[in-house]
Amino acid sequence: MSPLEPAQPPVPGADERVGVAVVGGGFMATVHSRAARAARARLVGLASSSPERATDAASRLGFDRAYASLDELLADDAVDVVHVTTPNALHPAQAEAALAAGKHVVCEKPLATTPDDAARLAAFVAPGGAAAGRTATVPFVYRYHPMVREARARVRSGEAGTVLTWHGSYLQDWLLTSADDDWRVDPDTGGRSRAFADIGSHLVDLLEFVTGDRVRRVAATKRTFLPERARHRAVETEDAVAVTLETDGGAVGALLVSQVAPGRKNRLHLEIAGTGESLAFDQEQPETLWVGRRAGTTIVPRDADQLAPDAARLVTVPAGHAQGYQDAFDGFVADTYAAVRGAAPEGLPRFADGLRAARVTEAVMDAADAGAWIDVPGGER
């Protein structure tokens, strides 16, 4: 990690637009830039893998300028916040460089491809760390669906009772065939884990966020069904993984994660059963929360008048007008920029949460390799 002494972070005034730059020019850069625009930030500039790609992406996404390099981006005093949207293996060095340059950082998940790198980044911005005072966040954006916050409020209020079981799945089909390929398939760029690190981490983050309970140990089985793809031979990263887990609070659960599930585009589903009621959320049907009781079942709509305050604050359009993934991302980015200005938004996922995800992912991979239960390290979250 860099030995540079970090510069002081910029703190825009309440009426001053946050200056934003993005590193990377792919799909996630598009999503981040839309969210930044919705939060009334100024899209200062963009850097990518080459000056030519940066110029193309900056023009396409509406940034003021393209940078020839990351160093040029970091030297621009107009940039307050850097969004890192590059391949996974690049995250630690780029995020740290931005922090050392005095910028606030939004780093795509996984925060790092190893727990050690994630721990160093989390320590860098923790109280007493070299970059303490920076806002440093990771987009676990499914926290920003209003109905997820409603489920969390019901657990925190005691309505759900003591949590007994969890089950969930995150299913996609975008890597279903051998013709489907991506840099994430390669462990040198994507990391040791593919499916779990990419999407399973969202599922575990949501389960822990909603319940306030933490995964204590895991057992897992993983499969690589397609050992050869269009641009990669001898593929080692997993297409699917099944996980059994136990929590600190005594709950048990099971998770299925797959990127080879035909017809499932982005189906994150979780159900939590407590002694008082069960709560189920489906990301592809995000307008409702299923509440199950022994005597009667309720479908709660995304209607601000019927929701807990923390859920209602994330409702951006009236009930009956659908909200979705980009709206959740917009809420996350808006909260990040509020934190840059000194606020403390409820539930904002920070680098400590990225470290937590890295530790859970490593435990799942170790459990699958060992064929045994593996404890998940604790520590800061």
Rank of each mutant, 00 (worst) to 15 (best):
E5I: 14
P9Y: 12
P9V: 13
V11M: 03
A14M: 07
E16C: 09
E16W: 05
V18I: 13
V20L: 05
V20Y: 01
A21F: 00
M28G: 04
V31T: 14
R34V: 04
L43C: 02
S49L: 02
S49K: 05
S50E: 10
E52I: 12
A54M: 05
A54K: 03
A54D: 06
T55K: 14
T55E: 14
D64A: 14
D64S: 14
A66F: 09
A66E: 06
D76M: 08
V81G: 08
H83L: 08
P92T: 12
A93W: 01
A95W: 00
A97T: 00
L99Q: 08
L99G: 06
A100C: 14
V105A: 02
V106K: 01
K109F: 10
T113R: 07
T113W: 05
P115V: 13
P115W: 13
L121Q: 06
L121A: 10
P127T: 13
P127S: 09
G128L: 07
G128C: 04
G129K: 08
A131G: 14
A132W: 10
G133A: 08
P139L: 09
V141S: 15
R149A: 13
E159K: 04
G161K: 03
T165A: 13
G168E: 06
G168K: 07
Y170V: 12
D173P: 04
W174R: 08
L175A: 15
L175K: 11
T177N: 12
T177K: 02
S178E: 15
D181W: 12
D188Y: 03
S193M: 11
I199K: 05
L207H: 05
G212S: 10
R216S: 15
V218M: 13
T221H: 01
K222Y: 03
R223K: 01
P227F: 05
A230H: 13
R231M: 03
H232A: 09
V235S: 05
T237W: 03
D239W: 02
T244K: 07
L245A: 12
E246L: 06
T247N: 02
D248H: 13
D248Y: 01
A254Y: 07
A254E: 10
L256P: 00
S258Q: 04
P262F: 13
G263S: 12
K265G: 10
K265W: 09
L270F: 15
E271P: 03
A280T: 13
F281N: 07
E284H: 12
E287Q: 15
E287N: 09
G292H: 02
R293N: 00
A295T: 14
T298Q: 10
V300E: 14
A304M: 10
Q306Y: 08
A308C: 10
P309R: 04
A311F: 12
A312F: 11
L314R: 10
L314H: 10
V315D: 12
A322F: 02
D330M: 04
G331Y: 03
F332S: 02
A338E: 02
A339T: 00
A339Y: 02
G342V: 04
E346Q: 00
F351R: 06
D353N: 07
G354N: 02
R356M: 10
A357G: 13
A357M: 14
A358V: 11
A370C: 01
A372P: 08
W373Y: 10
W373R: 00
G378T: 12
G378V: 14
G379I: 11
